[in-house]
Amino acid sequence: MPVTVIGGYLGSGKTTLVNHLLRNANGRRLAILVNEFGELPIDADLIEADDGDVISLTGGCVCCSYGNDLMMALMDMAKMEPRPDHIILETSGVALPGAIAGSVSLLNDYVLDGILVLADAGNIEERANDKYMSDTILRQLADADIVLLNKTDLIEEEQKGSLVDWLREKSGAASILETQNSILPIEIALQSFTHDDGFSADRSTHSTSQFETKFYSFSAPTQTQALAQELAGLSQIVRAKGFVPNENGKLKTLQLVGQRFEITPAPENVEAGLVVIGVKPLPDLSHALTGI
């Protein structure tokens, strides 16, 4: 099961993002793991039944609180029938999401999808100078694959530019996306397809006001590693996934989120092709994809 880790300090919009994703799950059965000290961070109208440990949500989704034992909660969740399609792990405000992702990767039932870290545009710089929390905030940003600069409606346009530059410096090669009210297309937040179903439905190029999705097919072998590195270096590209022919013409699965990518052997009986999702307008990738 893929796990998306959502980090960021208190008040940065993690809970709002989780609720937004639940409302836009479109048939995905999401399992939410939360560890926050406030009230249950799920909007009341999404809750179907509160059975104690596991809360049933609309659309077959569930929510559990993991207290101080994340690993046990994940192991319990792996036994759940039917299995969720995707796990969203909302960390506590002081957790280091990279360390949590490292722990998740030890469990054979799970693969890490990516680390999203939210930053409140109104106070992230102030937080990063806090007497107690400074290094924690900076470590959170450095752990991110995708940084959501959230609540951008609360700051001036010129402020935004310098904030993005500052975030870029602090978060390494993470993709930085501007959001308001944590509103983000679900295919940006979560990897939207699995090995098995391929991406037959996704062969189209489409876009929203902010994001764009493009499908590329391959007619020749590629330097897969170099291709992945190039994609990872392009800040507009947030996610990419597909099956890419390598130097020897063998298909490899390429998955990329922010600067993180993984190349693994492709499953049998899949067709070559790559879906790239990013900030509009996506750069011209034809030279990188035409192969060697």
Partner: peptide
């Protein structure tokens, strides 16, 4: 430096 197990707000 080590880890916070609770936020100042909490």
């Amino acid at each position: 430096n080590g880890l916070w197990y609770i936020s100042p707000e909490h």
